[in-house]
Design a protein around this nucleic acid. Sequence first.
DNA 1: CAGTGAGCGAGCTTCCGCTTGACTT
Length: 969
Amino acid sequence: MSKILVIVESPAKAKTIEKYLGKGYIVESSIGHIRDLPKSAAEIPPKFKNQSWARLGIDVEHDFEPIYVVSAEKKSQVAKLKSLLKDVDEVVLATDDDREGESIAWHLYQELRPRVPVRRMVFHEITPEAIRKAIQNPRSIDQNLVEAQETRRALDRLYGYEVSPVLWKKVAPKLSAGRVQSVATRMLVERERERMRFRSATWWDLEGLFEAKGVRFPAALAELDGVRLASGKDFDAQGRLKDGAKVVRLAEGEARALAQALAGSDFRVASLEERPFTQRPYAPFITSTLQQEGGRKLGFSAARTMRAAQRLYEGGYITYMRTDSTTLSQEAMDAARKQVRSLYGDAYLHPAPRTYDKKSKNAQEAHEAIRPAGSTFRTPESLRAELGDDEFRLYDLIWKRTVASQMADARGRRTALRLEGAASDGRRATFSASGKTIDFPGFLRAYVEGSDDPEAALEDRETILPDVTRGDAVEARKLEAKSHATQPPARYTEASLVQALEAAGIGRPSTYASILSTIQDRGYAVRRGTALVPTWTAFATSALMEGNFGRLVDYDFTARMEEDLDDIAGGRKRRGPYLRAFYFGEGEGGLGLKNLVESRLETIDPREVATIEVPRLEGSGIEVRVGRYGPFLKRGEETANIPADLAPDELDLERAEELLRTAQGERVLGTDPGTGLPVLARAGRYGPYVQLGEDTPPAKTASLLPGDKLEALTLERALELLSLPRFVGKLDGEEVWAYNGRYGPYLKKGSDSRNLGSHEQLFTVTLEEAERLFQQPKARRGAKGPLRVFEYPDREPIELREGRFAPYLTDGQLNASLRSGEDPLELSAAEARDILGERGKPPKNAGKRPSRSAGTAKAAAKGKAGARKAAAPAKTAARKAPASRAAKGGKAATKPRAAAGSKPAEWRELQAYVGVLSDTERRLVTATRGEGRKVEEVAPELGLEVAKARGMALQASKKLNQALREARG
DNA sequence: CAGTGAGCGAGCTTCCGCTTGACTT
């Protein structure tokens, strides 16, 4: 008997199908994609490593030929499939019937290279008949569809891997950009910008409680003397009444006076309108709506909803949970209708089977809607005992929604009632009340959709009005003036962002949940309650993207891409030309990503990118910037960290001033008894420190030591820190001092120095210990020694040393760092030799450059290409290099000094270069540094604000130092 | 976003979309 191997994507699906197919069939799964472009350097096959395009995983020079690798976690599955292949006579590739599914089938074919016949087929429904029918109608792999997928993959890779590095260099390392996440982030940012520009308007009205025929009901003032009362929709986002709005706007006093004037008035029914309505049930669940309702009704995050759904699917309780199709199979339709009839009766059944149009853009519809599995739906109650809590609640939701989708419309009436009364001042007031009566609940018996807006949900409930007719008297029980305010547009929640992305055709059901975690993991958004609040980093990134890669964050970008992919799938376009236009800019309207990125790397000024526009701070001289240590405010030389829990739209001028006043972390600890000067704790660019005196420059500063916390610092400890350096004693006639330095604690004796083991030793080290330390050679090469030494008969020994970044190997000529997977303890001599041979490199700075300034180095490296714009790129480079180092968790220790080894220059040395300064700068520095006067005193004479003068003085000093360095060569 | 002296050495971060465990807590 012949055997057939059927390969599907999901193991759970494989299990189900195997049951239906029975003997003669082996059903296995690929577990999704089996191959992909290499993710990182470690996955790139060695033979491509030297190619300039290797980091992309796509040979952009040869028609965008992709490199595919079987990722580590799929290797065992691929091996399993290969071994199963040996014993079968035929292979059936039954992956999903969409672009990705077709591609998986093709990759399976490529990777497995079966020697037996291969057929491609698709199931749209998992029932014995449907599967048997599919098996009888095989087709071949659709190469155009595969090509469309490959195009999509390449475009996403090129976008992500070309643009992300721009962010690393201009904003912060490890950030990312991508077709989906960058648009998602932009949506959050744009909404927050609206909120930041928003000005609220307030108005007043009257709310009354009326009674007629024994029924009490609320009604609100709608008109005054026939003119409509202003309400929220009459105001614009600036809090102004819209042009041409013919309305009355009541102020508080007027509203209260009117309430008084109406007290005791007679009211009559002026009009009564009744309109019938019907309401259709909602479409069965797809991934996005399931996530939305899971969030609204159950309070689940998108990820939690999907975890529960996955378990339900694996247990065979529901159909596949990653779908964009609202279609129910015939089997499901029958089951739902049967259940409606038995649970609610024929009256509740919609006369004909209901179908729902696909509603999302770019839907691929490879699966059916999410619904209870099987041809008979099990009721939630019957599963109570066997399901976990989350699963039960989610199943209940799915079951209700599916059943409701086949039920009858709800029918009811909406009534609008208007009441009139005359005020004592002669004005005529009209109140309106609305009611809603459900005559026949239909599907509402089973399911009411949740809402993001609880107020709207409340209004949705049934409201009963008394059975009155025109002219009937109505009694006012209570009349109250009430204030209202317009609200800014609401922030996105996880659910509403998914909805917005889906509406724009961006992202796929399988990725919605991970999009949300990506933008949170990258620090573009944080959750506050259910709301997603964009961070300042998101503002900086989005502004960069909008200003420099506008087309890539266009909301229609994906939509246009999808059209092009459809053309490729339909054979009307080719992958090559399309990608060449996108990447190289060939052809009309081609984007030309490669050149765009190159030119933007030159032109984008990181300082500009780091500065964020905040409308409410315009003209105040206060800037918001994102720096290495997070967002901060800046006004001249004053700075203050912006607390993480302050949402961008909450930062107004008042708050900003307050933050600057009590600069975060900055506080006065007390007074130094010795000098009488105040002791301040502050957060600086090199971390927290304490400062003696309020002047600029302060009398003294000292960094906090590793165990110290800025928030918990005491005056006592601060004074201790400020007491450094400590005089330890005299050795050989020279003074020994204990310093806390850039590279840690150390002892200094004349021009000689030694590291100390711990910071506490600064306070405890004795002269005897110091003497011993100075007797030992300097703690460099010899002191630490290699971790291990590998010896070889035929070559120099190789040493394994502890490095600043990671352990590394060296033989004196070549060095190579160990990578994450390589254990320094497990390493063998042979491996060490291989590693050094494979990627050993001679030291870069073999004692050539006097300056380690990154700015100089980068500018120099740019050489010919950058010569034209030498000034601008140099500035760029100077800032970005320290940024990338610092963010790695390295402290100030790795910051390069502009001029190694130079001491702060003396004024008399600098004086010679005042020619490089402007007139004002020169007068300022001469007065402060030359004559020792205070900035506060000099500033008014020069017509400057003190803060500005401080900044100028600092700039001037930098210029002078720069000039001095240049002169020294 | 403060100032406080030394120096061998790097390699990586990142995309979107298809799928589950294998890990630990």
